[in-house]
Amino acid sequence: MKGYLQIIKGTIEEYATYRLSFILWRVRIVVQLLIVYFMWWAIFAEHQELFGYTQASILTYILLSAFVRPFVMGTRTQEVGELIRSGDLSNFLVRPVSFLKFCASRDIADKLLNVIFAVVEIVILFFLLRPPVFFQTDMVILLLAGIALIMGMIQFFYFSLILSYLGFWTPDVWAPRFLSFVLAEFFTGVLFPLDILPIPLFTLSQSLPFYYFVYFPLKVYLGKLSVMAITQGFIIGLVWLVALWMLASVVWNRGLRAYAAEGK
């Protein structure tokens, strides 16, 4: 445990060394958020209600998705593909550490820093833009939204890890990762709430794991889901979590058999 805490500390120190890079990364995130925010602001400028959302609820959704996104989708697992390709993975295999826990520790550090910055940025943006946002006060709903968030975070961790494990079989994991992230960007609901999609697409999205990364926790927070829908969401989300965890284990074990430590 102490070792993994050191990994978290080391990762944070790594970011602190390259402060400027990290700050530029955050500026990029803010720009991205502002583009989406102003787009929605403009769409709602002439309408009281659209797609079943008021301006307040949609802007709350967009601002919250900016907070939830780094928490769920902030990851360092993209480095795993390069570790495999370069043969540097061998360094981890001979050490008395679990590679999975190592990756999880790096991710925790990444999420921690990104979330701290996201909170500060959102507070600043809140005071600058003064958007009409909705605050959830029901503690039960807040608790459920928190659990949904952690579920989405673990799901995404395994999802991203599986994509990086493709490095065992192909030297270029960029393209499959990019392709998957384009799909994920669309179906996670970071740009827009998924229920504005046409019904067949929305139904399809509910059967995908991406639905549980960002959209589901946010809908729970907004109190827009019935008890039945929340229960159903948690059940399907848990099924996806177990499926992704099992798939990651299978791919890792098979990958290790294919791993030749090329480059070392």
């Binding site: 002439e46 309408h47 659209l50 392709l179 384009v182 669309f186 740009l191 827009f192 504005i196 046409p198």
Partner: peptide, 20 residues
């Protein structure tokens, strides 16, 4: 990937403007 990405943004606008 490139083909999908270029269609992605147009589809997004298509959806967002479907009722306005």
């Amino acid at each position: 990937s490139s083909m999908l990405y270029s269609a992605y943004h147009v589809i997004t606008i298509l959806l967002l403007t479907s009722t306005v």
